[in-house]
């Protein structure tokens, strides 16, 4: 019970890191699949990366969807910017708004970083 309570009170901390975690998972999935494909698939260096590129496109779409969802929730939690930062009052409301804003900003960063990680699939077509 106490563990659950701890998780609930720490809830803001966990939602904060949802989008960067999605970035990390997306990164790992892209890297691991490409690495295993190039090491294991036939064709060696000239092996065509088409299946990997399709996979990257799919996980990127999924990752962006989750990040956008997280960002959207954060936006609401931030009260859609109704109150300007710095959210430095010692109130529950300001603590929530602070988390909302920080989560939103992290979602934005994760979104850019996720797109960056997907970019190589646009330019690189084989295992060389």
């Amino acid at each position: 019970m106490a563990a659950e309570r701890a998780l609930q009170t720490a809830g803001g901390l966990w939602t904060l890191i949802v989008s960067p975690t999605v970035w990390a998972v997306h990164f790992t999935l892209c890297y691991a699949v490409a690495a295993v494909y190039c090491a294991k698939a036939g064709g060696g260096q000239a092996a065509d990366l088409l299946p990997v590129r399709a996979w990257i496109a799919a996980v990127t779409v999924a990752a962006l969807a989750i990040i956008l969802w997280s960002g959207h929730r954060a936006l609401r939690q931030w009260s859609a910017g109704a109150v300007d930062p710095p959210h430095d009052a010692a109130t529950l409301a300001d603590r929530r708004r602070f988390f909302g804003l920080a989560t939103l900003l992290l979602a934005g960063l994760s979104c850019v970083a996720t797109i960056y990680v997907a970019l190589p699939a646009l330019f690189i077509g084989d295992c060389r």
Binding site: V52, A113, P120
Partner: peptide
């Protein structure tokens, strides 16, 4: 000598970290 695509992912993340 890792495949270019692998380097690409890390290049992307290395560039992205400049933003924060």
């Amino acid at each position: 000598g890792l495949p270019a695509i692998s380097l690409g992912f890390f290049s992307a993340a290395s560039v992205a970290v400049a933003i924060p």
